[in-house]
Lab assay of single mutants.
Amino acid sequence: DRIFMTRTEALEFLLKAHQTAVDKIGHPSHKQTPADHAAIEALDRLLLDVRARRVDQFQINASAAQIIVTD
């Protein structure tokens, strides 16, 4: 599946995904793992790359739809 978004929409989408990941590892019942921190770092890099126009398409994980940034 493909989803087309403007750059602004894609950045909002990534910010929400980032916040969800941060909230998940901050929850008291969740045991933090290196994979959790790696996922947040990957989202940080992706946010910067989309914002800087170095990336025009991405996929958060293998089961997610491919996001295509349109400007």
Rank of each mutant, 00 (worst) to 15 (best):
D1T: 03
D1E: 14
R2K: 13
I3Q: 05
I3V: 10
I3M: 10
I3A: 03
M5Y: 02
M5W: 02
R7V: 07
T8Y: 10
T8R: 14
E9G: 04
A10D: 00
A10H: 07
A10K: 00
A10I: 02
L11D: 01
L11G: 01
L11M: 10
L11E: 05
F13Q: 02
F13D: 00
F13W: 12
L14M: 01
L14C: 01
L15G: 06
K16L: 11
K16Q: 09
A17E: 09
Q19E: 07
A21S: 04
A21P: 01
V22L: 13
V22W: 06
V22Y: 05
D23I: 09
D23Q: 11
K24F: 09
K24R: 13
I25E: 04
G26W: 13
G26I: 10
H27D: 15
P28T: 08
S29Q: 10
S29K: 08
S29F: 08
K31S: 14
K31G: 11
K31W: 10
K31C: 05
Q32N: 13
T33K: 06
T33M: 09
T33Y: 07
P34A: 13
A35C: 04
D36F: 07
H37M: 14
H37N: 10
A38E: 11
A39D: 10
I40P: 02
E41F: 05
E41R: 13
A42I: 13
D44W: 15
D44N: 15
D44I: 15
L46V: 02
L46A: 01
L46H: 01
L48T: 13
D49Y: 04
D49L: 15
D49K: 04
V50R: 01
V50P: 00
R51Q: 12
R53K: 14
R53M: 11
R54C: 04
R54D: 03
V55L: 08
F58A: 00
Q59C: 05
Q59R: 13
I60L: 12
I60G: 01
N61D: 11
N61Q: 09
S63F: 14
S63Y: 13
S63T: 11
S63M: 12
A64C: 06
A65Q: 10
A65R: 06
Q66D: 04
T70F: 10
D71I: 14
D71K: 05
